[in-house]
Each structure stands twice: as C-alpha cells, then as structure tokens.
Computed example of a mutant assay.
Amino acid sequence: MSAKLSLEEKFKETGGKKPYVRRLFGRIAGIYDLMNRLMSLGLDPYWRKRAARYLALATGETGLDLGAGTADLSISVIRNSGSDTHMIGMDITPEMLEVGEKKLRRMGLQDRIELRVGDAENIDLPDNSVDGCCSAFTVRNLTNIGRGFSEMLRVVRPGGRVVCLEISHPPGKIFGTLFYLYFYKLAPLFGTILGKAFEEYNYLPNSLTTFPKAPRVKEIMEEAGWSDVRYYYLNGGLVAIHVGTKPE
C-alpha cells in the first residue's frame, strides 16, 4: 500500500485528517522542540527568524500565528518586530499550547503572546482583525489548503501580509536525493530512538509526499486572493517561505 493510501486509511480510522493530526501532535508535544532541532540539524531557529522578518510587524501591531504549537514562531516574531507588538497563537492541539504557555512564562512573554485553541481552516476572529498572519510547518497538515489561505485572507487587514514557512521539495536532483534519504529514512529513526514515536515521525515526511511544490503553493495562494505572492527557498530548498499581501 502506498504512503498516501496508508495515511488515508489512518485518517479514516480516526474520523478524518484533522482529528488524526490533533492526536498525533498531542502525543509528541513533550519532545516536539527537541525533535525540530535535531531533524533540522539546528536550522529550525534560523528558518523561523527569517519568516518572522518577512512578517515584520510594526509598533503596536498584532499578528496571528496559526498552528502555533509551542510558540516558537510567535516568539521569533516578537523578537524581530517593533516594540509593543502582540501575537495571537492558535493551534488545534491543547498539549502543544500547554508546552508553549510554560515557555512564555519562563521568558516573560505571556503578556505579549496569547495562546488559544483554534482551527486554521475556521479562524475564530473577525474580518480584517489582525495586521499579519504567519505559520510554520502548518499548511501541509490542513485538510483543505485553499480554505486555509482564504481564512487567512479574511482575518488580515488590507495591506497586511501572510508568511508561511514550510518543508519543501528541493529542486536539485543530487541534493533532492540526499534530502529524501534523510527526511524519509533517518528522521523516523530519530523519532523512534528518542521518543518511541515512529508513527508520528513517519507521518511528518509522508505528509510532504502529497504536499504541493512551492510553485503550486504560490498558485493556491493567488487563487485564494493573495497578491504579490512570492516564495523563497532556504538551504537549497529544504524549506520555502511563502509570502503574500492582502490587496488594499
């Protein structure tokens, strides 16, 4: 059975992709930050910092972080934006947010970053209510990517930006081959050894199999209504930062 069919069967067993993803990330919340560092060979903080700079909130503005998880991207946005900026972080997995809340209290950022349970495909915010929206490694977990980008467009004010950081498909043949060997073979092994979480870290690479390449993500964003859409490969295409602007 192919990886795609295998995942589809698992989604059916749990009532759909969203419940499956929620349960999966709930199980690995305690090791999520460590695994991000290991699987990215330490590049994860750099990637988030680059994404945060593209969002570039100005003084007094409020941003939205979808799939906020343990709040690392929200923290990076606060550190790389103007003073008195605030973030709302939403995630469907309470266990991830609990880890994030503890982190924010340790760092004294609980007054600038508000974490709440929320769904990226049905955002519980009014139209035009935030100055920008971002996500890190979230879009590929959505049931309907187009709906997710449409919802982001709805809640961002005119002229505001969306910035999405995602694992990508490296375009070079040699580098791409090495990437797939690492991502599909070694990453699940890391998860098994360190967290006894083979299924979870087998899902993560296989979720990329059906995720569109960066040029197609650009098209989906444009179809949702975003303008001036661009993408930027980092580290040879290991990840891509997708950026769009809501028309005035």
Rank of each mutant, 00 (worst) to 15 (best):
P126R: 15
L165S: 09
T93P: 10
A51P: 01
S74N: 03
R147I: 08
F149W: 03
R140V: 02
N141L: 00
R48Q: 01
I167E: 00
D111N: 15
D127F: 06
T70Y: 03
M39V: 11
N144I: 01
V163R: 12
A68E: 11
R105L: 10
D33N: 08
I145V: 07
S83W: 06
T70K: 02
M39E: 01
N80E: 13
M90T: 14
M39K: 02
T138M: 15
R37H: 14
N141V: 06
A71G: 00
T62Q: 13
I75F: 06
K103N: 13
R154W: 15
I145E: 06
D111V: 01
G42N: 02
D65P: 14
D65W: 00
G118C: 00
L55E: 09
L125A: 08
C134S: 14
G82V: 01
A52W: 09
G132D: 10
L104N: 05
D65I: 00
I145W: 09
L115A: 03
D65Y: 05
K102A: 12
N36A: 04
R154S: 05
P94W: 08
L66G: 10
G132T: 01
D111I: 04
R116H: 03
D127M: 01
D91M: 13
R154A: 07
A120M: 11
G100V: 03
S83K: 14
M96P: 09
D131V: 06
T62S: 08
K102E: 12
S129F: 10
E98Q: 14
G160K: 07
S150R: 11
V139M: 07
L55D: 11
M107F: 06
R48K: 15
V155Y: 08
A68T: 14
S83G: 00
A136C: 02
V163A: 05
D72V: 02
G146A: 00
A51F: 01
T62A: 06
L43Y: 08
L109F: 05
G118W: 01
R53S: 08
R112H: 09
I31F: 09
L43N: 12
I78A: 10
R50N: 05
I145T: 09
